[in-house]
Design a protein around this nucleic acid. Sequence first.
DNA 1: CGAGTCCGGATTGTCAACCATTTCGGGATT
DNA 2: AATCCCGAAATGGTTGACAATCCGGACTCG
Lengths: 241, 241
Amino acid sequence: MVATPKTIEPLAVEPAPTEMAPVVDGGLKAGPRGQQVVEALRTAIIAGRFEPGERLIESALSTELGTSRGPVREALRQLENEGLVMSLPYRGAVVLGVSDEEVQHVLIPIRLTVERYSFAKALETMTEDDFAEIAKQVWLMEQAAKTGDLTKAVEADLQFHDIVISASGQTHTLQIWRSIWPRIRAYFFRYGRSSSLEQMVEDHRVLLAALQTRDPKQVTPLLERHIQVATPPPGPKKKDR
Amino acid sequence: MVATPKTIEPLAVEPAPTEMAPVVDGGLKAGPRGQQVVEALRTAIIAGRFEPGERLIESALSTELGTSRGPVREALRQLENEGLVMSLPYRGAVVLGVSDEEVQHVLIPIRLTVERYSFAKALETMTEDDFAEIAKQVWLMEQAAKTGDLTKAVEADLQFHDIVISASGQTHTLQIWRSIWPRIRAYFFRYGRSSSLEQMVEDHRVLLAALQTRDPKQVTPLLERHIQVATPPPGPKKKDR
DNA sequence: CGAGTCCGGATTGTCAACCATTTCGGGATT
DNA sequence: AATCCCGAAATGGTTGACAATCCGGACTCG
């Protein structure tokens, strides 16, 4: 086993003094150190910079990221909740994989349940501002698609759904969605995408239009189709650890 | 506002030196301090010793439980993942409630998805030891029912399902189930039970028998019925915070 | 030669004390 | 009455040190 010199970016330190406080910011880069650690690790895992089964050592990560062990521990707990990592007492954390089976039989169905309910619920409460915010994400997604920037497109995808589900105002539903999504994302990043970026943009454009009609009969079928396309025929059997 | 002298038990300290190491223990009371804190708080919240909306202060809890803030912080993160608590940056953690709506439209359906898959999957892999362990839980449940000990009965209920789902060997499925269950349990503890303890015992006895046939056609319908009875007509609308 | 035992390094879990950062409520000011 | 400001309360983060545990390898003993 060769020592793999995994280098995670050491976390920006500069306070960016000329930055004004964003009122309705997209919500990036902000918050306590711990959150930044979470994002750094999540990105690294989803991008495949850690193999499933690989151990994550607190001290190593903390020195690498330039923080103390505290934030790293919290981040690992968070990632555990997002299903990207599993940790056992005194044994530490290992990166998890996702199997075809669980994606198809559990994760996707749960996503369906969550989003079907949230979208229907959100129809009653969404404001024009919400629609605007969503439109912004669709636009960002278009731009990303044009330049073939998969990461940016997926980020906009995430925001699109997050906004709607947040608008539904259902605490647990939102929390569950946020714990499900990273696994699905990791799965597709690892084992190939299903449809094209163009299709993805089109899906969301249509979905936004449907939302604006505030008619569940319009929205639900589109939503279901959109989510289900993410179910390719069972490729190579990939295991968890 | 009167200072509420909430007293959580200060966590047992004695190492119990005469205790022999259990080979196939039920797995209770063990593990790091943090886990004990989790259980103490989870029990307290589910038992209703904290009202939804109530704040949980790290320093207060740590002195009350006789540990430092570290384990308490970890415990709060864990409870957040179990949906019993929500915390915002620099604002701390507040106890969450569960609405009828989310239970019926989201939590129960997810539980159905998870357990239907797990049980079917477990049929292929369960050993005689597994069945024995389940039978033990059924027996414990019977005893608890006889003495009207609701807490013990629910604990056995939990173990029953946990064993089967563990046996299915699906990492994410198990993890999701463990994050869903506490909310459902809290909901029923707060807003009344549905069926009797006797019914509950009978359900599980029948379920065990079905499992032993290893026939999905037998198990699935029983399981679905068992889970769905947990859906009473929408009682008083209870909100989250 | 294989099984059990022991040991020490590596890593996680916990503690304590301390400071930085942020929130929030209330009072003083205008 | 609205605003600004301040300080208390709490959380977030740091450091350094230990304790508890796991794991792999060397060692012993049948």
